[in-house]
Simulated scan of single mutants.
Amino acid sequence: MAKHEKRYKDDINKVDKWKKALHQLANLSGYHYKHGDGYERKFIEKIVQDISRKVSRVPLPVADYPVGLESRVPEVISLLEMDSSDRVHMVGIHGIGGIGKTTLALAVYNLIADHFEAVCFLEDVREHSEEPGGLVNLQKDFLCKILGKEGVHIIGVRDGISQIQRRLSQMKILLVLDDVDEEEQLKAIAGNLIGLVVAAESLLRQRTNDC
């Protein structure tokens, strides 16, 4: 890199991009197989499933005319501190209706989704939580999307919180919650997961000063 810096001293941004790419590559997590963990066939199947899930991922539609996202998206991404994997990161996007909070969250989601083992965008959390069994249904949707399967059985909100923490605590997940207005909603879906990165859209209006 020192040689490249001299060679491309008139275009140092190119070298900076190379350094950043190498840094990101070094931080990529791989697959480690141990003979005591089961059959090698199952291990390979898991790799195929994980890769297939990422390859088949389709970006969510953002907006026909996205205006003003160029500066805001990098700012939100920097707050997530994605290079750190030792704790939960939570970002709240707060403001009056119609200013583009969901659009911004969607743009961030699409841009960084491939950096995570699994991703989930839950829309209209406030509206769905007011329906009968709303929080439990949101918990089921979350688990189904992350685990890639249907038929998740949850008997109540507390059981849902327990299942989410037990089944997802070892995964690096990007979760976007659209239109959250109660702390109960956030706790029911996000809980206290280890390694969970949460971009909570419209997070708790009564706690704006803490965001």
Results as ranks from 00 to 15, higher is better:
L79Y: 07
F116M: 04
W18I: 14
I47P: 09
D50Q: 11
Q24A: 10
L28H: 13
A113H: 07
I155R: 07
Y39D: 15
S78F: 00
E127H: 11
D179E: 04
N27G: 14
P66R: 06
L104I: 10
D159T: 01
D178N: 13
G92V: 01
A105I: 01
K14V: 04
L79R: 03
G36K: 12
Q206W: 00
H94I: 13
G156M: 05
D16C: 05
K19T: 02
I12K: 07
S162A: 05
V15C: 01
T208Q: 05
H115F: 05
R41Q: 14
Y39L: 14
D50I: 09
V125P: 11
A26V: 04
E130K: 08
E70G: 00
S52P: 05
H35T: 12
D11W: 05
R7W: 01
V58W: 06
C211G: 08
R72C: 10
Q170N: 09
L79S: 11
A200I: 09
I112M: 12
A199C: 06
V108C: 03
R53P: 00
I12T: 11
I99F: 08
I189Q: 06
H128V: 07
N13Q: 06
E45R: 15
Y33Q: 12
A118T: 02
T102F: 08
C144F: 01
V88C: 09
D124H: 08
L25V: 14
R207K: 10
K14Y: 14
S29W: 12
E117K: 04
T208S: 04
R158A: 08
K34C: 13
A105H: 03
E81G: 03
D124T: 05
E130Q: 13
R72F: 14
L79V: 09
R167W: 12
A118Q: 03
G95Y: 02
K145Q: 14
F142H: 03
R158L: 04
Q163G: 03
I47C: 13
M90H: 13
L193W: 03
Y109G: 11
R158E: 08
G195A: 14
K149R: 15
G30H: 11
V198A: 07
P61N: 07
G98I: 05
L203R: 12
P59K: 11
H35W: 08
V76T: 06
I189R: 05
D141Y: 01
H153D: 14
L111F: 07
Q163V: 03
L79D: 03
K6A: 01
Q139S: 12
E45L: 14
